[in-house]
Design a protein around this nucleic acid. Sequence first.
DNA 1: GCGGGCCTTCATT
DNA 2: AATGAAGGCCCGC
Length: 91
Amino acid sequence: MKLTNFEKDVLRYVLTIPLGQTRTYKQVALAINRPRAYRAVGSVLRKNAFPLIIPCHRVIRSGGDLGKYSFSKISKKELINLEKKIKNVLK
DNA sequence: GCGGGCCTTCATT
DNA sequence: AATGAAGGCCCGC
């Protein structure tokens, strides 16, 4: 499998997002030095190679809105809450 | 709520 | 190599 540089950057950053925290597509784009590629970030996450090990559900839209999420039946919000609970338990 | 713009990948030609 | 389409988006009006 081959990943483009862009994909690698995105994935690397996404993997650094702490448990229970979220980032917006825009922030991810900014973090990888491509301030206007927020849309492309969505594209990558959409068909990334590791849907199950990449916390794509921690990436939401600006303004607190949830984006689409096709890898699970439950919403991102549920996942975030779940992660918060996990964090509490581990605390 | 609608419309236009941005960036990358993929499929065709 | 070039062109066109699509996409989990964002901002301004």
